Amino acid sequence: MSMEDEEAIEGEHLLSQECKNMIISLPRERGWRTRYLYFFQDFWCQSAEIQSITKFQNHFQAKDTDIIIATIPKSGTTWLKALAFAIANRGRFAPSEKNHPLLTSNSHALVPFLEYTVYGGRFDHVPDLSNMVEPRLFGTHIPYHSLAKSIKDSNCKIIYICRNPLDTVVSTWIFINKIKPEYLPTLTLEEAFEMYCEGKIGYGPSWNHMLGYWNESTARPEKILFLKYEDLKKDTIFHAKKLGEFLGCPFTIEEENNGLIESIIKLCSFENMRELEVNKSGTFASNFENKYLFRKAQIGDWINYFSPSMVEKLSKILQEKLNGSGLSFEVLHS
């Protein structure tokens, strides 16, 4: 491996030589928060993610009680993790308790990412997850086709959420420019938009990511619950009840009458989580500050950024890519 190849691979000191050799053989393009994205298993990802995903695929053993929160980045991941954790663990932690874990820990710490937190780090470290309290909750951005075989074969539950791609592009662009290394140039909105339209974004193309989970959810609705961020925002109570039913822990009439659902929603709300000290000053795995996870949480903010021609271009791409699938997004005209 040449010196140039070594320097192109971020975090190369954490990677095995086998992984480095594989990475340099992969197609690569300009990255968003790293120098390059690599095309691995039919999706784009960063070099360090390739190793952690491989470790995850080789070692993760799913349990039937596991809950997997699968998402496209910047589509409501932080919120959905909080809701799922609070609903699944309401027997252990009442949302009104002053010592509820969500008041002192970011939801990403309570529902760790498989590819970052659990299987991240050095190539020779494989975690022991056998003693985790059940139900075990994990998060991931990994496309469905690249999930560990044990997840697909077990009776564990997968909750998936996506968002109107126009909002996703804006949210990702703003987020990346806040957390990217100083040695990388600032990404313009036009550059980010073109990269997204070409499918060259982390875990993208995004339409393939969505379709992978969408198609599986239609085939196995008892296995995968497919959500849209916009729907969750518009009727959070309905979807909180739906989450409870899907996870096998439906809310009782007594819980509903006592306002438990509303208490959980308030605890996990954007307004509440944004003001917590852990989300004002804490950090996510030392990679960036938690405060960058909370921006606006609005639907349709893209209208303040995109020109009509940009909206038309992405709308046509989405219509073509999603055609015939039954999955669609409302696009308002600017």
Rank of each mutant, 00 (worst) to 15 (best):
I299P: 01
N215Q: 10
G300H: 11
N279L: 12
H145D: 09
K242P: 02
F43K: 02
G199F: 15
N215T: 07
F40W: 13
N177F: 06
P165I: 11
N287G: 15
G120P: 09
F85N: 12
A86G: 08
G121W: 08
T34I: 01
E262S: 14
E271V: 01
Y203G: 00
H100R: 06
Q298D: 09
P205T: 06
M210E: 09
Y292R: 00
D301A: 05
P308I: 06
F56P: 06
H125W: 05
D124I: 03
P221F: 04
T188N: 01
K81M: 13
A70E: 14
G31Y: 12
L184F: 06
L211I: 13
C156K: 05
G212Q: 05
Y203W: 13
K316S: 11
D5T: 00
C162A: 03
G244I: 01
S325T: 07
L184I: 03
I142L: 15
L314I: 14
V311R: 10
E262V: 05
A84S: 14
H209W: 07
G282Q: 03
K74L: 15
W207H: 09
W79D: 11
N177Y: 01
Q61T: 14
P185D: 08
L332W: 00
W79S: 09
P205C: 00
G120T: 00
E230G: 09
L15H: 09
